[in-house]
Design a protein around this nucleic acid. Structure first.
Lengths: 119, 119
DNA sequence: CGGCATCCTCCCGGATACTG
DNA sequence: CAGTATCCGGGAGGATGCCG
């Protein structure tokens, strides 16, 4: 009998609940290129709203993935940078990114084949 | 100027939109242990409802991640098994699983530290 | 520029009941 | 056992407007 590895509060679930939204992983991957400011992140992660960008960045700071540095200038400048923990996660999700780019074609083909049969 | 790697329809987004729900990754990880039947998957992925398990399995079959094999017996038996593509993805998300188990403590500590300051 | 605050919509996923 | 069908609430997240 196989064990039951995914109880309600196992680490995997907690992390997945945290990064398993539409944007968190994309932001982490974006910041792999180095520290960037609020607006630039928003531009690179195409389509994210200001509100959700704010929320996501805040919760990433809270979880120790990012640091937030505000410079007292006019106009204001705020930079976000991956922490060691964040860079560590970034490497891990980079595997997923790579997998996606390498295998998306297979997925699309499988989907078309499946839909073709039932259609 | 850094490029903009995450346009609306880039492969990464498509895959993340697909596996970035509460359950897909957990099911894939569960099936890494070998083919299993409907009810057993439901037991191991604690808390998933029957409806969502059905939906998730179907879309994974559609995307070429799983095969579904129904045996004409009484009572019925249906087994799900990772395809080559699915096993490939399973290896990748296994990194995430491992990361979660190794770093959840750091995340929780960071969170407590953060909440402690602002509270 | 980098946020909040507010309102509102959509749809994921839970609960329940029924079927081959 | 392995689904299907239906109803429903909550929360993610988009749109808009204001502020230091």
């Amino acid at each position: 009998m196989l064990p039951n590895p995914f109880e309600k509060d196992c680490p995997t679930r907690q992390i997945l609940d945290r990064i398993g939204d539409r944007w968190t992983v994309l932001i982490i991957l974006t910041l792999s290129d180095g520290p960037q400011r609020f607006t630039d992140i928003g531009k690179r992660v195409e389509g994210i709203s200001q509100k959700v960008l704010t929320q996501t960045l805040q919760s990433l700071v809270r979880d120790g993935m990012l640091t937030r540095t505000a410079y007292a200038e006019i106009p204001p400048r705020v930079e976000y940078e991956l922490t060691k923990l964040g860079r560590n996660l970034a490497e891990t999700v980079a595997y997923l990114d790579r997998w996606a780019r390498e295998h998306i074609d297979e997925v699309i083909k499988a989907r078309e084949a499946y839909d073709g049969v039932s259609a």
